[in-house]
Design a protein around this nucleic acid. Structure first.
Lengths: 219, 219
DNA sequence: CGGCCTATTTTGAAGGCTCAAACTATTCTG
DNA sequence: CAGAATAGTTTGAGCCTTCAAAATAGGCCG
């Protein structure tokens, strides 16, 4: 059985990995993400390599093995299903469920997970629009466009918000830019670093491109 | 913050304590209940005494301080609310929720706990009839009579089952002796060590006094 | 090429929890 | 009361996760 520390490392490696070309994660980034000192990560990578969960060459970065990836996806599944459960069943705010799920993801048995999944009617995404890995460990590849680079003028649908920060999520909520909502990008001004977004009926909202790039869209 | 190991010790001390006259728990019993070697308990009691959660004299047994008791009751509240939640909301069987709750009780935040409590409409007892400590750490004192020593002939109501063993709970369920059910004790035969119980409408069930003593009743 | 900067690794240590096994206090028994 | 049985304690050790700080490797710049 993987300890919850190990589960956290695997999950984090998976997430970092998704953001890189070669699926190779630098230990420094990992240390920052895990909030530990670099030496700790080196130690841990050796241990994980010994258990066959990551492949790792000294000074060469880390990569999940297929066993490690299966485990990471299982943790991610628990995390995201729990988030959705907390919002839908217990009525928590989407800005607070990430932290809650960080704890719960390690305590949920397969049986309980299956009940949640069935109660929620086999959902595909969590409250932030992040895809939920299937019980068999498959994950659908997500959208590639954001408010920062989609076509302008046309109606589009918000599909995912790529930031778990409380304050950012609350801001997004106040703007009405939550997953599922239809909007359109009126105009983009690269010089002003700004994006004007029109939300159904309301007056336009102005975002910087950094924020806009975190809000993924479809169509 | 108390680690989940510490929470488990406090909870267990509380439970053992309830079963004794002087509220003093022998370290041997504790070791058995926790599934560790006696020396481990000695070490742990020293540590808990240092944190002011138990009072402990070498070779004199352990007792919770009021701080330790508050914490123990908070753990117990989480445990029992979670059990009820798993049965009522997720539809698990009452025979399996104890094990699930052992893990979850350490991962539930106060916020989530409050939501569960409110969704369940401030329940007083868990699926086994065990009382749920209030958020302020008060616990109502439970029934004193069981099928082994209540009055015979009169209708009585099952209020609590004092055993978390899967197989025993499933047996109790098959007999229809679950909390809330009305029954009556027809006859007791001390020599045969047997108790005849009549469950509404059905033919009588025969229990040994050990089993009968685990089923608490009211009125 | 040589030195420097940065990322990573190594080393030694600590805290929390546990064990095995040797030891000791206490209590029972004859 | 002596000896045995029982319960509890001590000691030395190990695993897991972490840290601080010193050492090192690799790449980049002049």
């Amino acid at each position: 059985m993987a300890s919850s520390t190990v589960e956290d490392y695997l999950k984090q490696i998976y997430l970092e990995q998704q953001a890189t070309e070669d699926h190779l994660v630098s230990l420094g980034k990992l240390a920052a993400a895990m909030g530990v000192v670099p030496g700790t990560v080196t130690t841990m990578m050796k241990a994980l390599a010994d258990s066959g969960l990551v492949s790792y060459e000294p000074r060469g970065g880390a990569r999940l093995t297929s066993g490690g990836e299966q485990l990471a996806l299982h943790v991610l599944r628990r995390h995201r299903l729990v988030e959705l459960f907390l919002v839908k069943v217990l009525g928590l705010d989407w800005s607070e469920v990430h932290e809650e799920a960080e704890e719960l993801e390690h305590a949920i048995s397969d049986k309980v997970l299956e009940r949640m999944d069935s109660l929620l009617e086999r959902p595909r995404v969590d409250p932030h629009g992040d895809p939920i890995p299937s019980a068999r460990g498959k994950l659908s590849i997500p959208t590639r466009h954001s408010l920062a680079d989609c076509t302008t003028g046309k109606p589009i649908r918000i599909s995912r918000v790529m930031d778990q920060d409380r304050d950012f999520l609350q801001f997004v909520d106040r703007c009405g830019l939550t997953p599922g909502v239809s909007v359109s990008v009126d105009l983009r001004d690269p010089l002003a670093d700004a994006v004007w977004v029109k939300v159904a009926g309301r007056k336009a909202i102005t975002l910087g491109t950094v924020a806009a790039a975190k809000i993924l869209v479809e169509e």
